[in-house]
Nucleic acid binder design. Sequence first.
DNA 1: GCGATAATCAACCTATCGGTTTATCAACTA
DNA 2: TAGTTGATAAACCGATAGGTTGATTATCGC
Lengths: 113, 113
Amino acid sequence: MSDALSLVFGALADPTRRGILARLAEGPAPVTELGRPFDMTAQAISKHLKVLERAGLVTRGRQGQWRPCRLEVEPLDRATGWIEQHRAVWADSLDRLEQEIVRIQEGRHHDQD
Amino acid sequence: MSDALSLVFGALADPTRRGILARLAEGPAPVTELGRPFDMTAQAISKHLKVLERAGLVTRGRQGQWRPCRLEVEPLDRATGWIEQHRAVWADSLDRLEQEIVRIQEGRHHDQD
DNA sequence: GCGATAATCAACCTATCGGTTTATCAACTA
DNA sequence: TAGTTGATAAACCGATAGGTTGATTATCGC
């Protein structure tokens, strides 16, 4: 699970980390502030930040005794890029038709879409 | 890690599963065909499919002895939705300016908050 | 200097992940 | 009917994830 895209998606696969990113989307913040909303130790938050950093989603500076964390948006673009790329193929009308045919062949009655 | 969004991102955090989804984007396929490109047992593929199914990314039908898998796009929309929502805030020009200021302050080793 | 605060490091624990092997079930085919 | 193929179930295994406690480092305020 060491490729770049897996690291990004893996980092997003945790509500605490998504909460941290949501906070960072509004601007940089030190670690203690990032951890405040969560019922866990500062060490746990530090670990989550390391995961986010390894995925390239945050970078950390140094400002006195604080380590301000900053959101990096490029990995998020690559993530949405991957999804959209395949979603686009799927959404193609010809493929939709194909899907519908298979659905009918299966004898399943999905009235959705 | 049991909330819906975490399940989706977690499912995407594996190259084998992304490969399976990429194939499914072109249309439904039975399990053996999905597993063909990968150097692992059918049981492992079956497990990956179970992960994808639990995340709502694929649904499985029954067609004789085959179990055709089909891509479900709605969870992908929720995933990109979450990312875009926060990316949008970050990309706001005012925030960008803020980030730039912090970056400059760090570079000059200021001790001001 | 000292104590308090910000943050990390290290060790540990439990649960889950990603794969295997073995066995089982279901459906096609001859 | 038997034999083959598609697919899953169950038990197992090493590695990692996500959290804890305890100790350590660095910087601030006084």
